[in-house]
Write a protein that binds this DNA or RNA. Structure first.
Length: 583
RNA sequence: GCGCCCGUAGCUCAGCUGGAUAGAGCGUUGGCCUCCGGAGCCAAAGGUCAGAGGUUCGAAUCCUCUCGGGCGCGCCA
């Protein structure tokens, strides 16, 4: 409907343009919105206000001219100029009700569009280091990224979901060494575990696997391991300490055995993360290995490309990328004085590769604490000759958990509630997925665990799901009374109650909500919409009986209610939340 | 110090990219089932949109400054 009206307006403006009244390009100014107040009709536009100056006439007068030039349309009952120069559209009753049949006919497809025209988009999200289980902080990135991906798909993009696996850095060496040290402890030796090592129980678990499957094959005397290693903090430097231990692990194990421990740790943790996300309803098309970037020489190629383009220089024995010429606040090292690539160098290569894989748009979902990193990645794309505007970096603020009116401490040490797995176990997948995307991404999120678990109206997830289940229940009642839903028998024109009109209007808005949420990367809009729709439904349910003797009216009301159910189901599907038939 | 995000009802937040009288939920107060699921509904009270300037027909929304909160500023990943 909205599109129809927009095209009518475009035609009107085109006529006025050929009369020389409005400038070329005016059509792009067309912006149609739903009215908040019913006395302003169903849709309104402010084009006349926006174009008044360029047209050189008062807004109201221009509005009148536009209305006069507007082609007639059967769904439009009346068009009027109001206020300072708004043009308000009033639709016919039939137009209001038409959406009900549209929803029922389109079913699961209702709300989807081909706006993206199948263009390929890559969405990269979570990408947490595989050095431990997913933290509750990663959960928001997971829920948000997955929902943004779903939304983009719904509006017609071809979406590729990707997880970038940082399997090549120093953190992974620390993990492998931590596992090996725990393994040495399992062989019965005592040692002082490094303060900088990974302390979690999962490290013990991996070490136990190694011990169970390979006995003492990976053992070495602790005295040899620690011989000549500089002291740990607080007496010494913890970084130097752990680096020396990594070196010792590599030396004593040799390349092959070290790599085995490393890969065992990586595979175990990655399996855990994959499983965790799958149970959270988050599935990837690809897990992209940083190590593969290095091994294929892509990192070297990326640096070489920058060098050839004249954006690399040497200083203090290191290679620097002149990112400050592309909007970054300072230049950045890509190759350290010890010859190793920095993490940033891999990231340049990774984004170069993304572009080369032919995506139209790139979406990165990052934790907001990485925001300082945005300019340098964009700078790299620009320096490589690509358009940085093709990359959208979406920053997600942290979530703070609350229980019993208190902030939940989330330190690894306290052993309190830290993993996504635990969160899922406590509040369930549906509540977790919904709560994570309830707020816009750049807003800090207060995640109320008690509320997420409560089964009441206070809890928006249950409130929405309950509306869906209630419709299912109505259908069960229908069958018990020996009736069936007969859509052909429905006389939609009988739906004249204001609550029925409100519901139909809400249904008509759904495709626009999806499009808006998708293009703006704002899943919270869909979450809010569904709550409003559920509210309109509950109000209707309480006020009007559906299962009445009058077949034409009964089937009309059932049509409306089933359409509501369909839209709730479609919306929840995009959010990754289930739509139960009974609760 | 510099940069990014945020500041809207007692609390948690929306506000459709500058529109018409700023909206929800919770909480508070008062109501509603012999009827399709009370995990529900209705109503009332509650606002200097942090503050001050500016831009214009029109600002919670855009610009500048001030105040307050969060985060970030490595040859770490």
């Amino acid at each position: 409907m909205k599109n129809t009206l927009e095209s009518l307006l475009a035609q009107a403006l085109e006529r006025l343009r050929s009369d020389g009244l409005v400038p070329a390009g005016a059509v792009r100014q067309v912006r149609l919105t739903h009215t908040r107040d019913k006395s302003h009709g169903d849709y309104a536009t402010n084009v006349a206000l926006a174009l008044a100056k360029a047209a050189g006439m008062p807004p109201r007068e221009l509005a009148e001219r536009i209305v006069a030039a507007l082609p007639a349309h059967p769904a439009v009952r009346r068009v009027e100029v109001a206020g300072p120069g708004f043009i308000n559209f009033f639709l016919t009753e039939g137009a209001h009700h038409a959406v009900i049949r549209q929803v029922l006919e389109a079913g699961a497809r209702y709300g989807r569009s081909d706006r993206g025209a199948g263009r390929p988009v890559q969405v990269e999200f979570v990408s947490a280091n595989p050095t431990g289980p997913l933290h509750v902080g990663h959960g928001r990135g997971a829920a948000y990224g997955a929902t943004v991906a779903n939304l983009l798909e719904a509006v017609g993009y071809r979406v590729h979901r990707e997880y970038y696996v940082n399997d090549a850095g120093r953190q992974m060496d620390i993990l492998a060494t931590s596992v090996w040290l725990r393994y040495l402890e399992l062989t019965g030796q005592d040692l002082a575990f490094p303060s900088n090592g990974y302390q979690g129980d999962y490290v013990w678990d991996i070490a136990a696997t190694l011990h169970r499957e390979h006995g003492e094959d990976y053992a070495a005397p602790v005295e040899q391991v620690y011989e000549g290693v500089p002291p740990d903090a607080p007496a010494g430097d913890r970084e130097a300490h752990i680096d020396a231990l990594i070196g010792r692990a590599k030396a004593l194990l040799g390349d092959i055995r070290y790599r085995y421990v490393f890969d065992l740790a990586l595979a175990t943790i990655l399996d855990d993360i994959r499983d965790d996300l799958e149970k959270f309803g988050v599935v990837y098309d690809q897990w992209y290995s940083e190590r593969s970037l290095v091994e294929r020489g892509l990192v070297m190629q990326a640096v070489e490309r920058l060098r050839k383009a004249g954006h690399i220089y040497e200083k203090n024995g290191a290679l620097w990328f002149r990112s400050s010429e592309f909007g970054d606040e300072k230049d950045r090292v890509v190759v350290r004085d010890n010859g190793q690539f920095t993490y940033f160098a891999s990231d340049i290569a990774y984004h170069m590769d993304k572009i080369e894989r032919g995506y139209d748009r790139l979406v990165d979902v990052w934790g907001a604490d990485h925001h300082g990193y945005v300019p340098r990645v964009k700078a790299a794309l620009a320096a490589l000759g690509d358009d940085p505007a093709r990359l959208d970096i979406l920053l997600v603020q942290f979530a703070v958990l609350w229980r019993g009116g208190q902030k939940v401490q989330m330190s690894t040490r306290s052993g309190e509630f830290v993993t996504l797995r635990q969160l899922r176990k406590e509040v369930g997948r549906d509540a977790a997925r919904f709560f994570y995307v309830m707020r816009k991404a750049e807003q800090h999120l207060d995640f109320d665990l008690d509320l997420a678990k409560s089964r009441s109206a206070d809890n928006p997830v249950y409130y929405i799901q309950y509306a869906h289940a209630r419709v299912a229940s109505v259908l069960r009642q229908l069958a018990e009374r020996g009736w069936r839903f007969e859509p052909q028998a429905a006389e939609l024109a009988r739906l004249t109650d204001t609550r029925e009109e409100d519901l139909a209007a809400a249904l008509a808005r759904y495709p626009e909500i999806v499009e808006h949420a998708a293009l703006g990367h704002e899943p919270h809009m869909l979450a809010h919409y569904l709550r409003e729709l559920a509210h309109a439904f509950h109000t209707y349910y309480n006020a009007v009986p559906f299962l009445v003797e009058d077949s034409a009216l009964r089937n009309a009301r059932l049509s409306l209610v089933l359409a509501v159910q369909q839209v709730i189901r479609n919306g929840l599907e995009l959010l990754g939340v289930s739509a139960p038939e009974r609760m």
